[in-house]
Design a protein around this nucleic acid. Structure first.
Lengths: 142, 142
DNA sequence: CCTACAAGCTTCAGTGGGTAGAGGTTCAAG
DNA sequence: CTTGAACCTCTACCCACTGAAGCTTGTAGG
């Protein structure tokens, strides 16, 4: 029987995160001691490890929920899991493409800066004038 | 005098987002009509355009705050703005590197899947067993 | 058996960067 | 003067956690 702290250490998760996963139903409610502390089995550790590894690969929690579901029923065909992974791969590829466009523009900005005063700073100029932009980037973030 | 809707259309921003920027002090409070509606000048439009373009390049709002500050004082040396841009470039590069590692692992997972049932699904197997992982990725997301 | 104290517990609030909706008011055209 | 699109404020929600306040439990040493 493992305490939540042991689970946290062995999976590289914060204690609060484990409780959060339980709260949102990603992990089942574990057994408790008489005093109300959580105690976990090795199976529950495996499940958490699965979740963490999936998160490290960038899967959103909803996708992980589906993957857990699939992992619980070994008779289902694998195509569903494969589809989720492919979707994730596509999203990663999209993000890479977007970030590479940003990198190009940022490099241009930074390299053209002549280091004088802000009045004719290349960085600020580019930010001010969108028309100097090489790329379209309608979406932002992440 | 421009309405908030015109500003939104001309900068590709949602109306709510403009009000949000005002609320967090990124944009100054504009003038109002007798009835309480916001009215903007072209200068204010320029400022918003600057913010939006910076966001599209992935700058966080705090960095944009600094950049706006610098843009307001043309006598300051440009190095500060350059530093912010360089920091942003570094972060973009880091994210690209991380995402490329993810892409490699996801590709491996997806390509090795034989399409049978979940019991021996390669995707789920990799997620279950972290030791099959080629890369370290301690940080997740974005 | 008693005491320390690390580690557990619950609950609430905050992060970034917005977005959505309810419910009400104002502006401008016809 | 009426209509209706666009405006207003306010609140709550998104993701995936993280931190802290204030309290209780478990365990090791004496």
């Amino acid at each position: 029987m493992l305490t939540i702290g042991t689970l946290a250490r062995r999976t590289g998760t914060k204690v609060q995160t484990i409780r959060y996963y339980e709260q949102i139903g990603l992990l089942p409610e574990p057994g408790r001691t008489a005093g109300g502390q959580r105690r976990y089995s090795e199976d529950e550790l495996d499940r958490l490890a699965f979740v963490r590894h999936s998160r490290q690969l960038g899967f959103p929690l909803d996708a992980i929920r589906e993957l857990l579901e699939l992992a619980d029923y070994p008779h289902k065909p694998c195509t569903a899991a494969d589809k989720i992974a492919q979707r994730q791969l596509q999203q990663v590829e999209q993000r890479i493409a977007r970030l590479e466009a940003l990198r190009a523009e940022l490099e241009r900005m930074v390299h053209e800066c002549n280091g004088s005063n802000t009045a004719d700073c290349r960085v600020l100029e580019v930010l001010r004038d969108h028309s100097e932009c090489l790329t379209d980037h309608d979406e932002i973030g992440s």
